[in-house]
Design a protein around this nucleic acid. Structure first.
Lengths: 246, 246
DNA sequence: TTCAATTGTAAGATGTGTCTAACATGGAGG
DNA sequence: CCTCCATGTTAGACACATCTTACAATTGAA
């Protein structure tokens, strides 16, 4: 096998930084790299030495840092992963620019080639397939169910139309009944709490029992149990399932 | 501020493991945790001590490990992030089960609440909105452009239909012309290479010049330059842009 | 009851990445 | 020519997550 040296996340970050600096200024100095990455110059020198040992940068001590051809290829690969994630977050999920950026930075080191490839396929598809303005993605971006800041329902989204199966608030399930989470009809803190408890779309749950008055309701999720307040149970839209096979 | 102790990735993993073991066997022993995580028991003890210090587990030495209520909440949160990522990879991108799993493991530690929330919104939308069998997602999963293993085009996908703008192979652009990458009409190694060079859908590029015979063609991507072989340039579908404003 | 197997702990080593503080270098102005 | 200051380098320390190895405690069988 060739030199399949795996770069540590920090080294990938340094490589990326050097690439961007070299693009901007034709060369990179230790100081610039330190500023860019928010570390002290003393941390940069040893990192450059390691990159030089791996054959990724040409490093004339006290002078400048430049990329080798191998280094350029590696840096572009890291950058491509970053870009794919960034575009996914910003353009597809419509997350704020800054969050998209930081999230991409954090995840770029653990994105496999296969996954990146597949995400790009999704982009290609979304771009090529439904070019009309009522494309599914555009509908997602306007969908009231998927967005907090709009009224109950709008044109452009046919959730109440034909073909959509009925869902009920969880609190309409009787004790002992099962259901599958379809959506969380709520935003903000309640939604966060429900998601963090594992109430994700597609999750199967069983209503264990209601307290008198129905206020805390105990739910079984797999083998673990959680208690929900009434307003949380109301926010959770489920599709009823046939009772469990005994 | 309360104890907003941030868990290291490894501690999150331990917490997750403990949660799953406790669910399965009512309690967790150091040894089980070590086996589950593929480490030696000697690594587990200190980790448990640290989790106990953070108030996340109740740890009776030599006996068992159990979660505190706080720990259970934290563990469910980690697990929920894992599940969201896993479902995204497996069900939406249609990646193999095993890859989805390992990718989710790697990324779960850097998924922010906001991003998770938004991914769940996408799931909810896809589930609620286009319930018909020709939903966009189903079309993605069958789309020949997005999948290597099918012929040129199939029913169910109307790429050649009306409303789709024309794209050309990159090699039809003359030197000096600009374009935006729309898709990579190729699979396997060539696709990998193009992606790794940063040729992602949405990327703007300029054709710098062709070598005699047109075989290597030099492309400018932002401020950096790459050379493409003819068969690579043919695989790259671009939309021509108006020439750059001088 | 005593020993062996099982299980857990403690201590030391490694690898990575950071910091600070002290030291080196080289060019510009005096 | 010398000195000062920007910049870089080195060394030493720490933190963290992990490993291995050697030791300790528990348990149950002979």
């Amino acid at each position: 096998m060739g030199p399949v040296e795996v770069l540590t996340p920090a080294l990938e970050d340094y490589l990326e930084t050097v690439f961007l600096l070299v693009e901007r200024h034709k060369f990179a100095r230790v100081r610039d790299i330190a500023v860019e990455r928010g570390v002290k110059p003393g941390s940069v020198s040893p990192a450059m030495k390691r990159l030089a040992d791996l054959g990724l940068v040409k490093y004339v001590q006290r002078e400048y840092v430049d990329l080798t051809e191998t280094g350029r290829v590696a840096a572009r690969r890291v950058l491509a992963r970053h870009t794919v994630l960034f575009r996914f977050f910003r353009d597809l999920l419509k997350l704020p620019e800054e969050l998209s950026e930081s999230e991409a930075c954090a995840m770029e080191h653990s994105l496999s080639s296969a996954t990146m490839d597949r995400m790009v396929s999704l982009f290609e598809f979304l771009d090529a397939c439904p070019q009309s303005p009522d494309s599914l993605l555009a509908r997602f971006h306007q969908c009231p169910i998927a967005n907090a800041d709009c009224e109950d329902c709008k044109p452009g989204c046919e959730h109440e139309g034909a073909g959509v199966e009925a869902t009920n608030p969880l609190s309409e399930l009787a004790a002992g009944e099962r259901g599958i989470v379809v959506r969380i009809g709520s935003h903000g803190a309640i939604r966060q709490r429900l998601l963090n408890m594992g109430m994700l779309p597609g999750t199967e749950l069983t209503v264990e029992r209601y307290a008198p008055g129905g206020d805390p309701v105990w739910i079984r999720l797999g083998t673990s149990q959680v208690a929900l307040r009434r307003h949380e149970a109301d926010a959770l839209h489920v599709k009823a399932l046939a009772p469990e096979i005994a």
